[in-house]
Design a protein around this nucleic acid. Structure first.
Length: 625
RNA sequence: GCCCUUGUAGCUCAGUUGGCAGAGCGCGUCCUUGGUAAGGACGAGGUCGGCGGUUCAAAUCCGCUCGAGGGCUCCA
């Protein structure tokens, strides 16, 4: 099931120091230049920004009035073929800064002048030229355009200049290129195949979840089948938590604004929250006073009006549970766990199926511990994540240690604590024995974190499990415990969610299994297929036995032939089919066909079959194992 | 939020230059009672996402709006 493919050799186009590209990168980078050559032939007024290779292809950003259409891409592709036929050599030319600036000014390519300014003083400045096309470029390239044989333009998308939404939005044309046509074809075929396991498609077909525009964007309705999967996952994790000494708690979905002022969530992150809930009477009172919307907003932000907030995080609630009684060092660590539902106002363009939503349930927990306990507790959390991922057969993930960015203002707490937290986290990560990357600017606002990141079928990365160390919120809430010295001490807070959110995790899981869930998770575990109506009673008898053991089954008593019933059960991805004919009824046996083998596995007694399935469920066995 | 694309039956999709709304699957009823991936017949089901405009006439053309898809930005 290894479709979460990671390539650690991906080229970073921010790194101008990288001079030598791999052969595949050279092909793709050259394809980007060829595309720019073709675009300038067809649209001489186009202004060029940059065109790097990516880990799946290449793109080039253009600034041009004309809106590129799918039809235009065909024309550009045709012109690219001409450029390839011309076999133009790629020529490296070293120039001075002044020469380059004059040149690009002359031909009116102003973005290039901006890019030129990025090159540090003292570093060499180079053009790459093919035919009539000259680009500011560090290289490297294939020998000539004729070497780029297999490419395809895929789509056009908006992209902000230099990645900032404050800048102009350019048109980015994406394409891909390979050493030969066969590999290109294979890649395009893989893309098609990947789309088939998209959780939105499978989720709809298998009726696992529903998003209804009348309910709202990014709000998931779990169907009965989807709810079974979620419930099983929750049972699984609750079992593991019990083993690790966690306590389950429940907290409400809303809380007073003041609580979130203390935590720092409000109003600093109000852009990504649902607006506060203010009581009707208060609103009409203010309206009578002629209060404008802007004034109202200011009063809310300033704390003059109280209201409630749909919680964007569970931590303030758990913190209040911790603070609700005096704590001794003997009580620590306190581990409070909850499947807590939170709401965040994600930008509409960012919502995606179950993986990016506006309301989601975290398998959240908050650990309150002493300084000395921190690293052991983090290790415990990481162990939990690893147990979960390995039980589900998800081995292709990467680990990211998210650190603070020096220049950003988004972080709470003092630098000393940050450094302490980052040091602890890095130490534990080192000891974990799994490769990880350090990423600056990926920290949470209250502390650094370790994230487990997987890729979906489209190739997008999603953060699942996360462990975060926080010295800041205990301060904001003035938390304490009584130490052995009979003095108050500040506890450390660890936030952790091994699944991340149930929604996102299930979305990724649907794609991971392509809907073929292991038996313990499968919404329907056994389908009973009576061959004729004469076996209906026998089927009901078997069903009752399975039901009494808690095995999820159904009877297909439609008036179809066996082949049709099997086909239906196969497409609905039911792990087991029991074929029930006259022979089986006679012998009190069931004939087993499993989704894995897809062939008759012979007859068993009901008891033996139940024992087999129960064992599979109990051990949470993976398909094929 | 921004750029592009897109919206026709429960699902997947046809629908010519504007001229009576279509198919397959699924669903219902009946026939068929069969042995490891599709038996047959008949039938129900649509304000063509919504609102407005142009026109004798709009699924089709135009405007606005609400979803969805691919990117960009964002993701405490």
């Amino acid at each position: 099931m290894g479709f979460f493919i990671f390539k650690f050799d991906q080229f970073s186009h921010h790194n101008d120091a990288m001079k030598q590209m791999s052969p595949l990168q050279e092909i793709r980078h050259s394809a980007a230049h060829i595309m720019a050559t073709a675009v300038l032939r067809l649209y001489p007024e186009a202004k060029l920004d940059i065109g790097p290779p990516t880990d799946t292809g290449f793109y080039y950003d253009f600034d041009i009035e004309h809106k590129f259409t799918a039809e235009d891409l065909k024309g550009i592709e045709a012109e690219m073929k001409n450029v390839v036929k011309e076999r133009q050599p790629f020529e490296r030319i070293e120039v001075t800064r002044q020469e380059a600036e004059n040149f690009f000014r002359e031909i009116g390519q102003n973005y290039k002048i901006g890019r030129l300014a990025d090159i540090p003083e003292g570093e060499s400045i180079t053009y790459y030229r093919n035919g009539e096309f000259v680009d500011l470029c560090a290289g490297t390239h294939v020998e000539d355009t004729g070497r780029v044989r297999a490419f395809k333009l895929l789509n056009v998308a908006g992209a902000y200049h230099r990645g900032s939404e404050k800048n102009k939005q350019l048109q980015r044309i994406y394409g891909t290129a390979f050493p030969d046509k066969k590999e290109l074809k294979k890649y395009l075929h893989q893309l098609e195949e990947a789309k088939k396991r998209d959780h939105r498609k499978i989720g709809k077909y298998l009726q696992l979840f529903h998003i209804d525009e009348d309910v709202g964007q990014g709000l998931i309705l779990w169907t009965p089948a989807g709810a079974i999967i979620r419930q099983q996952l929750q049972n699984f994790i609750a079992e593991e938590l019990r083993k690790q000494g966690y306590d389950q708690v429940f907290t409400p979905h809303i809380g007073k604004l003041g609580l979130f002022r203390t935590s720092g969530h409000f109003p600093y992150y109000s852009d990504s929250q649902y607006p506060p809930i203010v009581h009707r009477a208060e609103l009409s009172h203010l309206a009578e006073e002629g209060c404008s919307c802007a004034e109202l907003s200011n009063k809310i932000d300033g704390g003059e009006i109280d209201g409630y907030l749909l919680k964007p995080m569970n931590c303030p609630m758990h913190i209040k549970l911790y603070a609700s009684q005096p704590r001794s060092y003997r009580d620590l660590p306190v581990r409070l766990a909850e499947f807590g539902t939170v709401y965040r106002w994600e930008q509409s363009g960012e919502l995606t199926g179950m993986t990016r939503v506006r309301g989601f349930t975290q398998d959240d927990a908050h650990l309150f511990c002493t300084d000395e306990q921190v690293s052991a507790e983090i290790e415990g959390c990481l162990y939990l994540v690893k147990v979960i991922l390995s039980t589900l057969g998800m081995s292709d993930y990467r680990v990211r240690v998210g650190l603070r960015a020096d220049d950003s203002e988004k972080y709470a707490g003092n630098l000393e604590n940050w450094n302490k937290a980052e040091k602890v986290l890095l130490e534990v990560a080192e000891n974990m024995g799994v490769p990880f990357t350090k990423e600056i600017g990926e920290a949470a606002f209250y502390g650094p974190k370790i994230d487990f990141v997987v890729r979906d079928v489209i190739g997008r990365e999603w953060q699942l499990g996360t462990v975060q160390v926080d010295y800041s919120l205990p301060e904001r809430f003035d938390l304490s415990y009584v130490g052995a010295d009979n003095k108050p001490h500040r506890p450390v807070l660890i936030h952790r969610a091994p699944f991340g959110s149930m929604e996102r995790f299930c979305g990724v899981l649907i794609e991971h299994f392509a809907g073929n869930f292991p038996t313990w998770l499968a919404p329907e575990q056994v389908r009973l297929l009576p061959i004729t109506d004469n076996q209906n009673e026998f089927a009901q008898n078997i069903f009752d036995q399975l039901f009494s053991k808690g095995i999820r089954a159904s009877i297909d008593s439609q008036s179809d032939k066996l082949g049709a019933k099997i086909r239906r059960a196969e497409t609905e991805k039911v792990p087991y089919m029991l074929i029930l004919g006259a022979k089986e009824a006679e012998q009190e046996m069931v004939s087993v066909r499993s989704r894995v083998n897809k062939e008759n596995e012979g007859s068993l007694t009901v008891e033996d079959f139940i024992a087999r399935v129960e064992k599979e469920i109990e051990t949470r066995a993976l398909p094929n194992s």
